[in-house]
Design a protein around this nucleic acid. Structure first.
Lengths: 201, 201
DNA sequence: TGCATTTTTCGACCGACGGTCGAAAAATAT
DNA sequence: ATATTTTTCGACCGTCGGTCGAAAAATGCA
């Protein structure tokens, strides 16, 4: 009963690496068991299906990111910086995202979507807290906070997930953020400084 | 050479119906050829792959919708109404969307994503024209129009594609649209009247 | 220690799937 | 009537996710 847990963690780690580097669809169960040096039956002793494995892998990823986000929430930095930091804490790490053939796209639709879904689920409440904080400070002013926060996340996914965006995208995103949250123009300008050089397409 | 075209159109029609009602992933090539009453080889005489078939099916869909959208663009209705009409012309028709087990979701990620991608590609330029028109009329005021339009589409996809949204979502969406385009508050209020009763989740 | 029970591992096997191919049949040109 | 091109056929292939009964380890118990 103890050995089992180790096995599962080991398999999860392998699956995670493979899914992230080659993509979910391009990773077969046979790939996983070959790397683990086990038989098919053993794999299915620990997982109901390949998809359930994906679910658990995603669970792990989000858990880590949620941890980071909560720390940021509790930290004493200014509210606008918190927003930016939390949003970017939920983006795929550079090593996972584009650095190498690692594909968060284009054929990894399924994985990508499941991640997004779960991410919204956990990120919206946290970011909503920050926005409330901002409202108390008088720096933001808006209603329907969770809905607004979600839209922010949806747009930032579209812009940033694939790594290719232009200066104009950033300008509009900043403008939109300020207006959605009812902040003074310029409040989110500092974001521009955080963006690393990106390909324009 | 004439007969061939008919065949292909026939296959395309069958594939379209099957993809839309059962979903792409849940439709096998065998399903298609069985319904068409032909052999596997014949299918692959007309299509390179199942995915290419999907590509062509999507092309057909978007083409129709683009037609509608362009007519709206050229029609003499007020600019804000044009915006709303064009955006909704690009949404899946009710029959295709939720009416019956027909699934635009949840496992149809691939199809859904390809549709979205192609939709942005064609809808952004058209909507940008409308926004420019609005700016000329003095009803809108903004820069970076294509980027703003895309964000509008991205958000509306997220909200409307699955058919389940709340009144709050609508409120925020309207507010966001007005602010993104630099319109007077209330300019897009009429949209509320266009929304049919929806499930709240 | 020996035996029973539970946990873990194994790999042959399965059905479904997307796709290939050589050759027959149908249509068309000469 | 014959030659050529277009269309159709279906057996066959490799891969994939998943199943299953039985063997092998590990553990509980006397």
């Amino acid at each position: 009963m103890r050995k089992g847990e180790k096995r599962k963690q080991e398999l999860l780690a392998i699956a995670y690496r493979l899914f992230v580097t080659r993509g979910y669809e391009n990773t077969s169960v046979d790939d996983i068991i070959e790397e683990a040096g086990i038989a098919k039956g053993t794999y299915y002793y620990y997982f109901e299906s390949k998809e359930q494995t994906l679910e658990e892998v995603i669970g792990m990823m989000i858990e880590e990111e949620t941890e980071t986000a909560k720390q940021i929430l509790a930290s004493p930095i200014p509210v606008p910086q918190k927003i930016a930091a939390i949003i970017s804490s939920f983006r795929p790490a550079p090593e996972e995202q584009s650095i190498e053939g690692a594909l968060m796209r284009p054929e990894n639709t399924l994985m990508h979507d499941k991640i997004r879904e779960k991410l919204y689920e956990t990120a919206v409440p946290i970011l909503s807290e920050v926005v409330k904080e901002g409202i108390k400070e008088g720096i933001f002013s808006c209603d329907n906070i969770p809905e607004r926060v979600r839209m922010l996340l949806v747009v930032s996914s579209d812009i940033f997930d694939e790594g290719r965006f232009t200066k104009r995208d950033i300008d509009v995103f900043i403008d939109m953020t300020e207006k959605l949250l009812g902040a003074e123009p310029g409040t989110m300008d500092f974001v521009r400084g955080l963006i690393r050089k990106q390909k324009k397409k």
